[in-house]
Simulated assay, not measured.
Amino acid sequence: MRNNVIELKNFSIGLPKQMKYATNKEITTGICKQTVEEAFLTKDGFRGDGVADLRNHGGSDRAVCLYPYEHYLFWEKEFNRTLSPSTFGENLTVTNMLEGSVNLGDVYLLGEAVVQVSQGRVPCSTITKRTGHPLLLKMMIKTGFTGYLFRVLEEGVVRKDSKFTLLEPSTKQVSILYANEVYFHKTKDIEGIQRVLDVPELAQEWQEFLEKRLHKLITH
């Protein structure tokens, strides 16, 4: 899988704005992104991109969000409807980068920038509000089809036709799918938690969260 050519299907950014959902309800969110030709990627994310909920989104460990293109076909079949580009609020929608074949710590060249996989994405209720499917959030967590996040090692311009190539695979070989399984489902799997924590490039928030969980399991 990792030898296949990665194709950037959609490249989107957007600043937080009001989004209507349900019956006359509104929230401020950065999930509604627009397709762009190019943008400069800084350590904190793309210029012209942003999040509303700074506690749960954004920051240097969560500078870029990716969602695998193949999942669109799965969800479209599941819900019997067509999904618009960047439905999940991701910056990058790409082929051949499924959660099971991408590892924490993998380093990629993205246009002129260099990025590193830092954590799985923890989906939030805004996704269900945007799509109008109350089961979507639970199903993303159940399947592990969450997408994932990157930190930026080197800043640079990214274009919609930029090459996306693996520069340096992680030596630890802990996939996003495995990390998601431990994070969401195998909450008492001491060995699994330790395996994820052994990846030095793991995002700080996930490190702290899993260390607390491990401490509770060991001391109780």
Rank of each mutant, 00 (worst) to 15 (best):
Phe209Val: 10
Gly30Asp: 12
Thr143Pro: 00
Val107Leu: 13
Leu137Trp: 15
Pro200Leu: 04
Lys43Gln: 10
Thr219Asp: 05
Lys142Cys: 05
Gly144Ser: 06
Gln207Asp: 07
Val117Ser: 09
Lys43Met: 08
Thr82Ser: 15
Glu78Tyr: 13
Arg130Asn: 08
Met1Val: 00
Leu177Gln: 14
Asn24Arg: 11
Thr93Leu: 08
Thr131Gln: 12
Tyr108Ser: 09
Glu154His: 09
Asp61Met: 10
Arg2Asn: 04
Asn56Glu: 14
Thr128Val: 14
Glu70Asn: 01
Asn91Cys: 08
Leu197Met: 05
Val115Lys: 02
Met139Phe: 04
Ser125Met: 09
Phe145Tyr: 15
Lys186Met: 04
Arg195Lys: 15
Tyr72Gln: 04
Lys33Gly: 01
Leu217Ala: 10
Gly30Glu: 12
Thr143Gln: 08
Ile141Cys: 07
Gly30Gln: 14
Val158Leu: 00
Ala39Glu: 01
Phe164His: 06
Arg81Glu: 15
Gly14Glu: 02
Lys142Ile: 04
Arg159Ala: 03
Phe164Pro: 03
Asn80Ala: 15
Arg2Ile: 03
Cys32His: 04
Leu135Arg: 07
Glu112Ala: 02
Leu73Cys: 01
Leu98Lys: 02
Arg81Ser: 11
Phe88Ser: 14
Lys142Leu: 14
Thr28Ser: 13
Asn91Tyr: 05
Ile176Ala: 09
Glu78Asp: 07
Gly120Val: 10
Arg130Glu: 08
Gln18Val: 13
Val51Ala: 08
Val5Asp: 00
Phe79Gly: 05
Asn10His: 13
Asn10Val: 08
Thr128Leu: 06
Leu92Thr: 03
Gln204Lys: 13
Ile193His: 10
Asn56Ile: 10
Ile13Gln: 07
Arg2Pro: 02
Met19Asn: 12
Phe145Ala: 10
Val122Met: 14
Tyr108Phe: 15
Glu99Ala: 07
Gly48Trp: 05
Arg195Val: 01
Thr143Ala: 02
Asp161Cys: 01
Ser162Glu: 02
Gly120Tyr: 10
Val107Thr: 15
Met19Pro: 14
Lys77Ile: 02
Val152Pro: 15
Ala22Val: 05
Leu109Glu: 15
Thr29Val: 15
Thr35Leu: 02
Thr165Ala: 09
Ser86Lys: 05
Arg47Ala: 02
Leu98Arg: 09
Ser175Val: 14
Phe184Met: 05
Met140Ser: 11
His220Gly: 12
Lys142Ser: 11
Val122Thr: 13
Leu135Val: 04
Pro123Val: 01
Ser86Leu: 11
Phe145Asn: 12
Ala63Asn: 07
Ile31Ser: 04
Thr29Pro: 15
Leu98Tyr: 00
Glu205Ala: 09
Val117Lys: 11
Leu92Pro: 00
Ile6Lys: 05
Thr82Trp: 14
His220Glu: 11
Gly89Tyr: 01
Ser162Phe: 02
Lys212Met: 15
Leu149Arg: 05
Pro169Asn: 13
Glu201Phe: 07
Pro85Ser: 12
Asn91Arg: 03
Leu167Phe: 06
Lys33Leu: 03
Ser118Ile: 05
Val152Gln: 01
Lys43Glu: 09
Tyr108Ile: 09
Ala39Ser: 08
Arg195Glu: 14
Gly105Glu: 04
Ile190Gln: 05
Lys186Pro: 06
Ser162Leu: 01
Glu205Ser: 15
Tyr178Leu: 13
Lys142Trp: 13
Ser86Gly: 10
